[in-house]
């Protein structure tokens, strides 16, 4: 097992209000951490700190990654005016050999020429999730990945993430609901 992320006494405040204080954890390859906490406890901020989008933070953060981080936040990074196929092209996964398998599982294989704006929120979320399913990274960060997903897709996502853990990838995810993923818990509500 290799250490991928090490956080020591991370503290973050916004407009003089402390969001969280002294968060420490170690994430090894093949392990997952489930970030829990009330609304506004800093789950998204912590994920953004880890992927390098937020830097104004106290404490030490060490990352030992060989590849880029795969991050799926609240925003899907999809273009509403493009078709599903064009969005897959923009995501640079259109030629991935496993794409069709996941599209069939999501029931979207016959919707490639449909404009994204015509799809439901859940279907759009599935397209965004393809970035995670076809990722080539050793650290996956997911911010509330199950919002808008049906039970079948949630189970499919959990199975996929458990398989990724077996492949030695590391996962950090925030979720209000319990997911069937082998993970440690990190509760931010206790860290204010």
């Amino acid at each position: 097992m290799h250490l991928k992320v090490k956080a020591k006494n991370l503290s973050y405040k916004i407009n003089e209000k402390k969001l969280f204080q002294n968060i420490s954890f170690e994430l090894f390859s093949g392990k997952a951490i489930h970030i829990k906490g009330d609304n506004g406890s800093g789950k998204t901020t912590l994920l953004k700190i880890i992927c390098g989008l937020t830097n104004q933070v106290k404490g030490e953060l060490e990352k030992k990654l060989d590849k880029r981080i795969c991050f799926l936040g609240h925003k899907n990074a999809l273009k509403q005016y493009l078709t599903v196929e064009e969005n897959l092209f923009v995501l640079d996964i259109i030629n991935h050999p496993d794409l069709n398998k996941h599209l069939i599982e999501f029931g979207l294989n016959k919707s490639l020429d449909i404009n994204l704006s015509s799809l439901s929120f859940g279907q759009q979320k599935k397209i965004a999730l393809l970035r995670v399913f076809l990722n080539d990274s050793d650290l996956i960060l997911l911010d509330e990945p199950c919002v808008g997903l049906d039970n079948k897709t949630q189970k499919y996502l959990c199975k996929f993430l458990n398989d990724e853990l077996k492949l030695g990838k590391s996962i950090l995810f925030s979720s209000h609901i319990s997911l069937d993923i082998n993970s440690e818990k990190l509760n931010l509500s206790d860290k204010i």
């Binding site: 992927c51 390098g52 989008l53 880029r68 981080i69 991050f71 936040g73 609240h74 925003k75 899907n76 990074a77 999809l78 273009k79 509403q80």
Partner: peptide, 16 residues
């Protein structure tokens, strides 16, 4: 603006 609102800029910022 569009890339900022839909999250594409976030993805660009963490890309290789």
């Amino acid at each position: 603006l569009e890339d900022f609102n839909d999250g594409s800029l976030e993805q660009f910022a963490i890309s290789n």
